[in-house]
Amino acid sequence: MMRVLSCAWDKSLKQFMIYRATGWLTFLLAIIFYAIEYVTGYVYFSSNTSVNGWDRTDYLVLVTGISVMVSAYNFIFILGHEELSELIVDGGLDSLLLKPLDPYWSVMLVGFDMPSLIELVVTTAVFIYLLQNYTLGIIKVFMIIWALIMGVMMIFLLNRICICFNFWLAKASSLGGVIEDLTSMLSRPKVFFPTIIQLVFTFVVPVLTVTNMPVEIIKGDGSVKELVYFSIACVALYYLSRYEWNQGMKNYYSAN
């Protein structure tokens, strides 16, 4: 497995160097969108303004944490998911099924998105800088790190569930971007949304949990119990996505 990962890394790095102008442009656009969200915090809040218990720093940590999670997802998983969607629709999964690796995961080894890695480094540095405005114990630090990791996995699993609808619906490819769009739309404090939106996107499609959990932990609104429930939800979604994958493979038709 380590040799496969090493090969995927080398391939991705070489591709980035070949298409470095495109890669740097992709990184620049991502940073511009993040900067817009960051500046928005200064528009929403003045230095002494608090809205529903949220101040400017809380908001900046929120949007930066989301950028960390999305860039981590894009770096590790986005190329594999784009490839998976095409392989299902085109009937080209055979090459994966013949490999001595679990095809559920092996599709992720097609490569890494290097511009997203650069974005991840930048946004992580900003996130750490913003955390200096809070007094955090070691337990809270570990809780925040775990919430970020679980957030990345939740984005991965929700995307995988959407993509695997391609096994049954030929025109379901567009669903691959739904979770990213929802994450962007819901990149605001949970309390800013109507109650019905909070309920749906916390307990049905837990995108608001992903976006808000790190800041809720920092503010003291997120407990260990809630983080455990979040982790259990990730495990449940994993088994749901595995079940969908297994059923989809029964419905898969090869182009060969």
Rank of each mutant, 00 (worst) to 15 (best):
F192S: 13
M213S: 08
L120G: 03
E216F: 11
F167D: 04
K225R: 09
V200F: 13
I232C: 05
M249L: 14
E226D: 13
L169T: 03
L157A: 09
L117S: 08
F230P: 11
T124M: 08
V210W: 03
Y243E: 05
F165G: 04
L175D: 06
Y239G: 09
K225F: 10
V122M: 11
F156Q: 11
Q198N: 07
C162M: 10
T123A: 02
I118L: 09
N133E: 15
R188F: 15
G137H: 09
T183P: 13
I232E: 02
L117E: 04
L208P: 03
L117G: 10
L157I: 13
K171E: 13
N166R: 15
F230Q: 06
S187L: 02
I179G: 06
L175H: 07
I163K: 02
V178A: 11
E180I: 15
I196Q: 14
L240K: 06
A125H: 08
P206W: 01
G151K: 00
L208R: 04
T123S: 02
L158V: 07
V207I: 13
L157S: 09
T202G: 00
W146V: 15
P214L: 05
L158S: 13
K219V: 04
T202R: 12
G222T: 14
S174L: 09
G222V: 15
